[in-house]
Amino acid sequence: MSKSIESTGIWKNFGDTQALKDISFDVNEGEIFGFIGPDGAGKTTLFRIITTLLLPDRGSMTILGLDSTKGFKKLRENIGYMPGRFSLYLDLTVEENLNFYASVFGTRVEDNYELISDIYSHIEPFKKRLAGKLSGGMKQKLALSCALIHRPRLLVLDEPTTGVDAVSRTEFWEMLRKLRQHDITIVVSTPYMDEAIRCDRVALIQSGQIMTIDKPQNIRDGFSRKLFSAKAADKYGLLIALREYPGTLSVYPFGDSIHVTFSEEKPDKALTEFLLKNGITDAVLNETEAGIEDRFLELMGKDETRKL
């Protein structure tokens, strides 16, 4: 399988802050590759290096077979980029934005219309409206249309779903899925752990370092212990009690339950007694499947250099 991106040992500093530390990864042609991590993890810096907007301090990156530093002119014709804030001209109409981006890339909207028709059809009824007057979801679709209008071979999307409501997010991922049939490689970043499963492969990134790269299912399977989900009416009381229990390895609140791991294979009566002693009478403990976020937390916990 040929590679769209091959990155080896990328480092980037801004003054004293290390934004990226030894970033190496490959992206296969035609796949959706996700970078999952919180704000400040280095996603945007990395994406700016991929789009040739920044030069790495060290390391090399080959994109679409070209060196990202030397071949940037040629590369820029084949990359579609959607920065974190949707890069639209708010005082231009939907149609004017699209036409403008088409002209900048030396193409016409008609030439590649079938590529964007699926996406653009959602906003076409409002083509005379100023981009500034669109809702977040519609801005996102317009920005995606603009990024695709020159039929790029590599699509780079920096947090395309941040600040967009849940319905639009779901729609957006469906659109990306459909784009795969046009042989476009997609690199996407997101702070939402639950979006990892939408990607073919993901890299978990934190504090400028990649913690792991794999298929989403493999990452979940990588969770090293049995994971239990605990519930009780007094959630906070349960949390405190579980934390104090000697056999506990990790405790994290997880929505309406608490995810906990133990040093022994299966918690025994001692735990029930311990909880009772702490006034938790209604605790329910079930084994559960680890999610991406559980694995993320596990990997973060291992990183001893991390300071809270």
């Binding site: 704000d39 752990m193 906070y236 949390l239 609140p253 976020e293 937390l297 973060m300 809270l308």
Partner: peptide, 15 residues
């Protein structure tokens, strides 16, 4: 936008 551990510490404070 905060990392998963900080987020959980935050929710513990809320609890």
């Amino acid at each position: 936008g905060v990392d998963p551990i900080t987020r959980r510490q935050f929710w513990e404070m809320i609890y």
